[in-house]
């Protein structure tokens, strides 16, 4: 009895899951099904509704508090559950605050540059490995897949990055995690499904692989490109631990997540600019509304992108979910 790990096995699993969701859904109760009981419907509604509320209510409270006046916060004794005198004061203050403004730019910069780099590298690699029987593609594929199952661990990686001079450098927040074998496999899976006839026709017309990738493969796989970019982008936007590892001291370089960690999760005082009106550097914890405005700020980009991506989840994301 031997265990053999096959890439085909993994891919088979992924494409089976994809095929599965294309099955048309029933939209009406079939004749043979017994009518729902009142108790059953109520229990179902309460459970699902409860779960939705647990997700939505904290977001609501945070947004409302961030829009509240100091007087409203005082009246509520902390978080404000229901709008009671709305003001954008906290947001105005936050954006005049150099720490948060810098952090926002840093986060956006890392996310944009990182995602662009990751996508370029991943799309190229996925296409390079997607043409069957090409030279060495099996070996390279194994090289890729191995990284999903074994890694050197925290300290060896840290030693390599700092050994290359990555301490306090921007690239240390981008390059070590720039390539995700899993995202490449998702992309490759789709590229392999691109019509062989189409590619053959283009080849006869004299198109090379670069041309085929750019003009045929990429335009026919927009959904999976979008979802993969979302995964990478969210990863960069949310990155927190590598900041703690590689840039813990220079607060001028902190991205938003680290600022959020320091001033909200840990509740340290925000080093305000002098005219920010809530005390001098490290003097006191920032007003609650301001803290909540920072929370909302980290949410906004996600909420802006999410609606556009959400519709693709049913096609592109399943392979990712299989991994758990």
């Amino acid at each position: 009895m031997t265990d053999t790990f096959t890439i085909e096995g993994l891919e088979h699993r992924a494409s089976a899951a994809e095929a599965a969701v294309r099955v048309p859904r029933r939209t009406a109760r079939p004749r043979w099904e017994e009518p729902p009981t009142v108790v059953g419907q109520a229990a179902k509604g309460l459970t699902l509704g409860g779960f939705l509320l647990i997700i939505v209510v904290p977001l609501w409270i945070v947004v409302v508090t961030s829009l509240s006046t100091q007087a409203a916060v005082n009246r509520a004794g902390g978080m404000v559950l229901w709008p009671d005198g709305l003001t954008f004061e906290a947001y105005r203050e936050m954006l005049t605050e150099s720490t948060v403004r810098t952090a926002l730019l840093v986060s956006l910069g890392i996310t944009v540059v990182g995602t662009a780099l990751s996508m370029a590298v991943s799309v190229l690699c996925a296409y390079g490995l997607s043409r069957s029987r090409s030279l060495g593609h099996r070996f390279l594929l194994v090289l890729l897949v191995v990284t999903m199952f074994v890694n050197g661990g925290l300290i060896p990686t840290f030693l390599v990055v700092t050994g290359l001079g990555g301490y306090d450098q921007w690239w240390a927040l981008i390059l070590p995690g720039a390539v995700s074998a899993f995202n490449i496999l998702i992309l490759r899976n789709f590229y392999m499904q691109t019509s062989a006839d189409l590619i053959e026709a283009a080849r006869i017309d004299g198109a090379g692989d670069w041309r085929i990738l750019w003009s045929i493969v990429l335009p026919t796989s927009r959904a999976v490109t979008a979802v993969t970019a979302l995964f990478y982008g969210v990863g960069y936007w949310n990155s927190f631990f590598n900041v703690m590892l590689y840039m813990p001291t220079d607060s001028e370089k902190w991205p938003l997540q680290y600022v959020l960690f320091t001033y909200v999760d840990r509740g340290n005082g925000m080093p305000g600019s002098i005219n920010s009106g809530f005390g001098t550097a490290h003097a006191q914890t920032a007003p609650l509304a301001l803290q909540m405005a920072v929370v909302v700020l980290t949410l906004v980009p996600l909420l802006l992108v999410y609606p556009f991506m959400q519709k693709h989840f049913r096609t592109g994301v399943l392979t990712g979910a299989i991994k758990g």
């Binding site: 190229l124 390079g128 090289l143 050197g152 990686t157 030693l159 390599v160 290359l164 390539v179």
Partner: peptide
């Protein structure tokens, strides 16, 4: 096309493996 990805993996995944 595969080179950039493999290079990054070698430096940040395989070298630490020997680390």
């Amino acid at each position: 096309m595969v080179v950039p990805a493999i290079l990054l993996l070698l430096v940040f995944n395989y070298v630490p493996l020997f680390g």
